[in-house]
Design a protein around this nucleic acid. Structure first.
Ligand SMILES: [Mn+2]
Ligand SMILES: [Mn+2]
Ligand SMILES: [Mn+2]
Ligand SMILES: [Mn+2]
Lengths: 216, 216
DNA sequence: TAATAAATTTAGACAAGTCTAAATTTCCAT
DNA sequence: ATGGAAATTTAGACTTGTCTAAATTTATTA
C-alpha cells in the first residue's frame, strides 16, 4: 500500500504533531535523519496521496486517512515492543530498533492476533499507550517529576526521552514503570531532586526530572 | 548489511540449488517474478560482494558466505511460520506471505530468542527443516507418495507444492503432517492412488501423489 | 519598514532496482 | 559441422528516495 519511507514519514509527522500543530520541514528532516530538500519531495508525494495537508512554506499536518495509517504503525511498533519484552525477555532499552523494523510488517490480521495473544496490553514497555484495532487509546495525564513539589508523590508512568542510555540509567536506579515516588527535597542550587522510592533516597538531576513522567 | 532485494535473490538461489547445481538466469527470473535482464544485473552485484560464484552465461551458485546468509533467512522464514501457526493459530496455508516479510527482520538475537521461546522446533508447519543458530538442520529422506507401491505405507512429512490451494486441499482431506498413510490401490488408467488414512479411503490424483512427501 | 537571517523549495544529480529492445553466446538438431 | 532457437547479457531508460547547491520565501530585528 504505502512504501517503507512513506510509513516512516507519516509516523514522524504523527509524533511531531503531538506537540506542534503544523510540522515543519526542518523538524521532519531532523527526526528522520535526512535533509530538508528530501522532506519537501516526500511531503509533496504524501500530499498528492491525500495523506497529509501541505501548503508550501507552511508545514504539514496529517489528514484523517494519514492519521489512521500512522496510528496503525504506532500500534504495531508498541505491540511488537511489548512482545519483545514480555515474551522474549528483552530489556526495555533493547527493543526500539527491532520494533522500527517490525512495525512495517503489513498484515493487519497478524497484528490483531498478536494483540490477542498478549491479552490486549494497554501500554508498551515505556508506558506509551497502545492504540487498539480501531486506533483508539488511553490518554492519562502525564507530567514530568520536575513539575511537582516537595512532599508530592506519583507513579512512574512514562518517559520523555526514549534513548537506551536514559532507560539504562533508570533501570539501574530502579526507577521503572509502576514504581511509586515521592519528592522529599529540591536542591535550590541546581534544581535537582531527592526522591523517596523503593525504600531508598534517590538523587536525580533536573534533566532526569524533566524526562521522567508520572501520573498523580 | 544486505538489501531486501539481495536477500531475496540469495534465498531463491539457495532453494533452486537444492535441485540444480548451477542456477540459471531464467530460473531465477521465474521464481522472483522478474526479468532475466534484472537478474543479470543483480547477479553481478552479488558476485562482486563474493556471495555467489558467477561466470557469464554459466549460471550461479552460492559461495560459503552466501549460503550462510541464505540459511539464516530460511531459518527466520520457517521460525516465523512456526510462530504464526503455533502461537497465533493461523492455518498452514495462511502464513507464507507474512513470513516473506518477517524473514527480513535483521536481529539475530531476536531470532535466537524466538527459537528458544518456541522450544527449538525442528520443522516448520509444512514439514521443512528449521536450521539452527549455526545453520545446521535435519535432513530426513523424503519421497513423493507417487514413488511407493501398493501396500506400502509412510508418514506424511512434507509437501513439494507450497501453494495455498494445495495446502487447503490437503487440510480438507486431513492429509496433514504426521498422518500415517498406506497405498491400497493404484488405478492404472490415470495412475491415481487410493490411500488408507484416518480410517478412511482417500482417492488422490497422480499430481497430488507427486507433491505430497512421506518418510518411510 | 527594510535588510538580513533562517527556513523552505527548486534544480540537477546519483544509486538501487527494475524494464524493454537489441546484441551476443550457447545449445541442439539436423 | 552448422544454422536456427533459446538463453543470456548489454544498452539505455525509468522510478523511488536521496543529496548538494542555488533560488525563493518567510521571519526577525534594527
Ligand atoms: Mn520505540
Ligand atoms: Mn516504546
Ligand atoms: Mn513459506
Ligand atoms: Mn514453510
Amino acid at each position: 500500500m504505502n512504501t517503507l519511507a512513506e510509513e516512516n514519514y507519516l509516523k514522524s509527522i504523527y509524533h511531531l504533531s503531538l506537540t506542534t500543530q503544523n510540522v515543519s520541514t526542518n523538524q521532519l528532516a531532523a527526526l528522520l535523519n535526512t535533509k530538508a530538500a528530501s522532506v519537501t519531495d516526500m511531503v509533496k508525494k504524501l500530499a498528492d496521496k491525500q495523506l497529509i495537508n501541505y501548503a508550501r512554506y507552511q508545514g504539514v499536518s496529517l489528514s484523517a486517512s494519514g492519521e489512521k495509517i500512522a496510528l496503525q504503525i504506532v500500534r504495531k511498533h508498541r505491540l511488537w515492543e511489548y512482545f519483545l519484552v514480555e515474551k522474549l525477555h528483552f530489556k526495555w532499552d533493547e527493543v526500539h530498533e527491532m520494533a522500527e523494523e517490525m512495525e512495517h510488517i503489513s498484515s493487519k490480521e497478524l497484528v490483531d492476533r498478536l494483540d490477542k495473544f498478549m491479552n490486549f496490553p494497554k501500554y508498551d514497555p515505556h508506558g506509551d499507550p497502545i492504540p487498539d484495532s480501531d486506533g483508539n487509546f488511553n490518554t492519562h495525564e502525564l507530567k514530568p517529576i520536575a513539575t511537582i513539589g516537595v512532599n508530592e508523590s506519583g507513579i512512574i508512568s512514562g518517559v520523555r526521552d526514549h534513548s537506551a542510555g536514559f532507560l539504562q540509567y533508570l533501570e539501574k536506579q530502579q526507577l521503572t514503570i509502576g514504581k511509586k515516588i515521592k519528592v522529599t527535597e529540591i536542591i535550590g542550587y541546581d534544581n535537582s531532586m531527592i526522591l523517596q522510592a523503593n525504600d531508598k533516597q534517590i538523587h536525580i538531576s533536573r534533566e532526569v526530572a524533566n524526562n521522567l513522567l508520572i501520573v498523580i
